[in-house]
Amino acid sequence: MDTPLREPTFLILTALAAQPMHGYGLIGEVAALSDNRVSLRPGTLYGALDRLVDAGLVEVDREEVVDGRLRRYYRLSPGGETILSTETERLRRNVEAATARLSKRTRAALPTTPRTAGGLA
């Protein structure tokens, strides 16, 4: 699978990193992880899961029938864990670089406080 990962893919893998989940649980978890910014619909979610299963990043964990409805649980595969770790590390380095630059910029923009003659003493 191509990297960098698209945000919905990254969030699906992140959600599965905690524990195996079924489709309904994944939709809620992805929404929670993204502060409700990314809202997956089932048609889109299962399309993404198909691609992730084909790419070997996600595996089917087990199936259950709850209230007459089929629930298939998915888990992160070892390959998926590797990709998620690599992508997380890449993002972390980007965040650190951006944070350093921004704090440098903030420091440079701070007005210099005139010193009181003789100090405060």
């Binding site: 489709g23 309904y24 619909r41 089932p42 048609g43 409805r69 089929l70 629930r71 298939r72």
Partner: peptide
């Protein structure tokens, strides 16, 4: 099929009788 429809039904409001237009477009 059963898995996709099951997830839609899990997400549906209790009194919902019709799929939302966005659900139809998604499917």
């Amino acid at each position: 099929g059963a898995e996709i429809v099951g997830t839609y039904l899990d997400l549906a409001a209790p009194a919902q009788r019709w799929p939302a237009p966005a659900d139809a477009a998604d499917l």
